[in-house]
Design a protein around this nucleic acid. Sequence first.
DNA 1: CTGAAAGCGCTTACAG
DNA 2: CTGAAAGCGCTTACAG
Lengths: 330, 330
Amino acid sequence: MLADRLGLHVSTVSRVLHAKPDESHRAASSATVERVRRLADELGYRPNPHATSLRTQRSNLIGVLVPRLSDIVLATIYEGIEEAAGEHGLSTFVTNTRDVPDFQRARTDMVLARRVDGMIFGDAYIDAGFLGEVAARGVPFVLVSRRAGDYPSVTCDDYLGGRMVGEHLLSLGHRDVAVVAGEPYASTGIDRSAGFADAYAEAGIEIPAHRFTHSRFDARGGHEATERLLAAGDPPSAIFAVNDFAAIGAFGAVRDHGLRVGADVAVAGFNDTPLAAELPVPLTTVRSPMHEMGRRGLELLARLLQGEEVSSERLRPELMVRASTTAVLT
Amino acid sequence: MLADRLGLHVSTVSRVLHAKPDESHRAASSATVERVRRLADELGYRPNPHATSLRTQRSNLIGVLVPRLSDIVLATIYEGIEEAAGEHGLSTFVTNTRDVPDFQRARTDMVLARRVDGMIFGDAYIDAGFLGEVAARGVPFVLVSRRAGDYPSVTCDDYLGGRMVGEHLLSLGHRDVAVVAGEPYASTGIDRSAGFADAYAEAGIEIPAHRFTHSRFDARGGHEATERLLAAGDPPSAIFAVNDFAAIGAFGAVRDHGLRVGADVAVAGFNDTPLAAELPVPLTTVRSPMHEMGRRGLELLARLLQGEEVSSERLRPELMVRASTTAVLT
DNA sequence: CTGAAAGCGCTTACAG
DNA sequence: CTGAAAGCGCTTACAG
């Protein structure tokens, strides 16, 4: 269509439009180059990506799977992915799997049916069984947020973050502590819990098994898990919830038991979501670089797609101390 | 490829695969139909969507623009959109515009370059100027969350929701109230504020202009806006923040002024996000059907794409009364 | 320096 | 009942 209006053959137009600035002389005469570029600009011409994909066997599309986009942590990671994708000329598809294996499988099939060039999983199970199948199909992919097996991943150094919280609570004199540990299949909760437990172990304190309880990652889940911890009538002096939403749920359960967060029971979270600092009792938490994690994840995948060797990255967390662990009175 | 293995022509295979169950006899003999279907199943065959799009001039792709996916309200709406899209055989692309007009334009261009069949805007400005341009280009679209002009939209009945909060606070005896009103370009904040003000006006109380202040829609923005309301040293007895996150920010500002939420200053929000009920002081708020809004938005667009006439929908809100407006003591 | 051809994987109207 | 052709909009290696 551009070609028609210029009286040129489409192949000439295509060559011009794809020439790198310094190689335009091999595409056409400078007068032709000039004419083509001007009209393309004027008309806002954009090549049909379906035709391009069909011809080049490359879609420049990336499929992203997350447990839930309504979890601000994953949404923020995805924002990083999308931002970096734009800079690499890639487009992204996201979809929710709710951590349900059947959905992970079905969504992966759907994404692959769209002929993506690669995938990013934000919902990896620690056992990596399903990822093995994906790898066997030859699909290039990376993980974000959670690690699994030896697949390339970009995560927060969750173990270190857990240690930081442990050391912080130890320094405040808490000896009887509990952990709202998240889902058993997610490396985030596993590593954060382990780092926390190790900090205590090194101080000579073994946290008993009944002080650990799994939980969903949302507020409701944190509430229920904390309820289980408090039901015995022997409350710990501090609770580490492995993410901020679970910590907010812990706030609710502590409140329901007539206890005050900060004064009676210290509560710490993980992620430093934007709400943490604004809560009526500001939440002590570990800042994890969520947006950056998404960016790096996309870049790792981009390098993988170029055929480069890549290795996993672990980003540095930072402890944010606030009133939920330090308030004497709320 | 299927065709090769079956010794059939691709056109035959294509016909079989596209025949409706009751018309398969017009596609091929029942034996052939059976063979094609069996092998397609076995191989997990999925037609290349780029080829199909190119041929049919329909991409079955929908572009979705939102201010930010890390806003749980929009993320939840998008989940509804995506869910319904799956049921209609459509795929969706989302992208963030941060409510910045230049980004709205750039992202729209990008989405259109991908040859989507239609768009859903979750980031409409009330003046609808930009949407006019999009309409002029002949792109089918609907709005969700915010209304604008006469374009088809699916929203919460925000005006009614605002009235509900007004009537609730009136019934509690609050006469000096303030509003954290959100961004001036968003119909959500505008309509919620108007409903609230009208409830007061009908009770004979004109809320003075200095008791309204605009704000971003996040916690930080709500904090800053409430700070402005409280700076004069003459605090209102109740504050209506037009969304939950701004309300949580209001919590922070109230706290910083040595006042207690619920006891000294009543605070109400909007949306009933999952956190509202879990806060140390549970938040009174208006439940808006976010997921449903997304579903209906997609369905409205699907009907529009079928060439049907469509009209806007307004979903019913529900008041959730909690301690942030009723606690005598926190 | 530019054009013409082939072909990516489909769908559809037509022929036999 | 099935095949063959045309064509969607591109890109690329080749010819002239």
